[in-house]
Each structure stands twice: as C-alpha cells, then as structure tokens.
C-alpha cells in the first residue's frame, strides 16, 4: 500500500473518530468549554489528508483523505461561528417582568402568556430542532 494511501486512511479514521465523540458529547450537552483538543485533532486529520496527497495515493486511496480533510476543516469552523451575540441593552434580565406574548403551539392552539399568572414557570428559548 502506498504511504499516501495509509496517511489518507489515518486522516479519515482520526476525523471520523473525533466527529463521533463530538456528536456524542453534543447530544449529551457535555461538550467541554475548552474545545482545543478537538480543534487540534480535526486539524491534524486535515493535515494528514493533505500529506496523503503530497505523498501520492492510489486511485481509490484518494477518497479517504478528501473526507478526512472536509470533516477536519468543517467542525473547527462551526466552533468559530458558534458564539452568540445579543443586541446590547435589549435583553431581558433578572428582576424584569416578562413581556406579554402569544404564540401558537404544536397543536395549532394559541398560548397567551397571561395564563402564566399565578404560576411558577420555566420558559426556554431553543434554537430549532436542527
């Protein structure tokens, strides 16, 4: 087997293994604050992928490194764009009274925030299902 092909397979295995752990932790809501080790692993997978092409791969052996490179570059990008920014001064804070609102639920029924009066409540804003 060509050296490049071996490097390409290593790139794919490292990228996939790190991605599997990543998505498992996302699902568990337990990604660490410091994601440097993930970034290092993903970028290393990409580097291995590029090294594979430099060394030269067989025709089929050219496939694993491209996947390794794509995964290895994409997930660090998602870390880079993940910080959230609120409009300054506009956000609700502790001690404020919530604004009145209505919204439609999954059954098509309208919910009115007035119905919360007299009840302790937990309100959660999600990103979407995806």
């Amino acid at each position: 087997m060509k050296t490049g092909t071996k490097l390409g397979i290593a790139s794919l295995v490292l990228a996939l293994g790190t991605a599997v752990l990543w998505f498992y932790l996302v699902h568990q809501v337990s990604l660490p604050d410091d994601r440097t080790p993930f970034v290092v692993a993903f970028l290393a997978a990409s580097a291995l992928g590029f090294a594979a092409y430099i060394k030269g791969t067989s025709l089929l052996g050219g496939l694993p490194p491209v996947v390794g490179i794509l995964i290895g570059l994409f997930l660090p990008l998602t870390i880079y764009i993940s910080p959230q920014v609120l409009e300054e001064g506009g956000a609700i804070k502790v001690g404020d009274t919530i604004p009145h609102f209505t919204a439609v639920d999954g059954n098509g029924e309208t919910f009115d925030s007035d119905s919360l009066h007299g009840h302790l409540a937990l309100i959660k804003f999600f990103r979407a299902h995806w």
Binding site: L31, D33, Q84, G95, L116, H117, L122, F125, F126
Partner: peptide, 25 residues
C-alpha cells in the same frame, strides 16, 4: 434566538436566567 432558560414567578418576574453564549452548549 440565543438559547436561554428563564424561571419566572407567579407575577411574571424573572427570578433566574441562563443565556448560552455558545450554541454548541
């Protein structure tokens, strides 16, 4: 929205809130 959890009292006052500065958490 920025992922946020609010706890409100019977009068609609915010008692506690948590704003996720990072959507992956």
């Amino acid at each position: 929205p920025v992922p946020t959890t609010l706890l409100i009292d019977a009068d609609g006052k915010v008692l506690w809130m948590d704003v996720s500065e990072d959507y992956q958490r």
